[in-house]
Computed example of a mutant assay.
Amino acid sequence: MAKQARGYKSSMMVDFEASFGEAPKKKAGYVLPMNSNELVKNQTLIESDTITNTRNDSQPALGRVSVEGDIVMPADYVAIGYMLKALFGAPVTSGEEATKTHTFTVGDDQPSMIVEKGFPDLNKYIRYTGVKINTMKLEYGQDQEMTISYNVMGAAREQSGTAYTSSPTVVPLQRIAQNDAYIKIGGTESRIVKEGSIEINANLDGDQYVVGGGGVRGDIPEGIMKVNGTVKALFTDTEWLDKADNGESVPVEIGFKRADGTTVSFTMPTVQFEPFDAPISGPAGVTVDVTWRAFSADGTSIVTVVVKNNQVSY
């Protein structure tokens, strides 16, 4: 009987391409922790209307290749840097050896990756090229494992009986706990937020198919970066409601920190609340659901992500 691959034996490896769809001259390879990897290749069969003097359908043709899917990873303080590099580009790194600060800001170009799903119990490796992150989303304040979901697009897929590299770097997991979270609104750390979310959207254009490549994408250009999110909070006054009604903006920082100084923070200098109200749903405490959107007032980065850890570089 054939042996079935086991998910717990699988792995995810990434490396950064030299240019879109082009492997680097020197392979690196980073094995990142994951909860799931649903990146897949889809290719339609194009139906034929050819008349053949019978009622029997004729052979279809292969259509365009669509490589896309969701990757869910545990939120952590180290591996997140590789995914942020894929979303923003290489960070500016400073600090001493044991306390490095990596600062990610919005740039003009977004790198592409090689992503490999490894099935070592079958000696099979499925490799995707030209992969870019389209959206990154995380939710905080809930009583469950904190994860980050990445929606990605790619160009092509290949299969191999050997791994991309025999000596990858296995990135250790330094998990972010729900209790590590904090949020600052208007420069002050809030004590009324129950939970929230943040989504960063690169607005990738996945419709750039070219002739001669076997129906694959010739590029996946990045678009205008959007940053938005939600907050559920205790209703204690009308300050936020007034700001929303008046179209006022406030700085918002969503972050995670440990006692040893390890941190990850997302800072949006200008955030506007969507107008909302305070519903009375029963006799219990009143809460409000607020949707917000960040914007750039002067051309500076719409969001700055700072990671402080002992990682030398990304």
Rank of each mutant, 00 (worst) to 15 (best):
P111F: 07
P111C: 01
P111W: 08
P111M: 01
S112A: 14
M113I: 00
M113E: 01
I114D: 04
I114Q: 03
V115Y: 00
K117I: 06
G118V: 00
F119A: 06
F119E: 08
P120F: 05
P120S: 07
D121F: 01
D121L: 04
D121Y: 03
D121M: 09
L122K: 14
L122A: 08
N123P: 00
N123A: 14
K124V: 09
Y125A: 05
Y125F: 15
I126E: 13
I126G: 03
I126K: 09
R127V: 12
Y128I: 13
T129Y: 11
G130K: 05
K132T: 00
I133Q: 01
N134E: 13
N134I: 07
N134V: 00
N134M: 02
M136T: 08
M136W: 08
M136Q: 12
K137Y: 02
L138Y: 15
L138F: 15
L138D: 04
E139Q: 11
E139S: 14
E139L: 08
Y140T: 10
G141M: 06
G141I: 13
Q142S: 13
D143F: 11
Q144K: 14
Q144M: 11
E145H: 02
E145P: 00
M146T: 11
M146F: 04
T147A: 10
S149K: 15
V152S: 02
V152E: 01
M153T: 07
G154K: 05
G154A: 07
A155T: 09
A156K: 10
A156I: 01
A156F: 08
A156M: 09
R157P: 04
E158F: 00
E158S: 15
E158H: 00
Q159P: 00
Q159V: 10
Q159M: 13
G161S: 13
G161L: 06
T162D: 09
T162V: 14
T162Q: 11
Y164A: 02
Y164I: 03
T165I: 02
T165K: 07
S167G: 00
P168D: 10
P168E: 05
P168H: 07
P168I: 10
P168G: 09
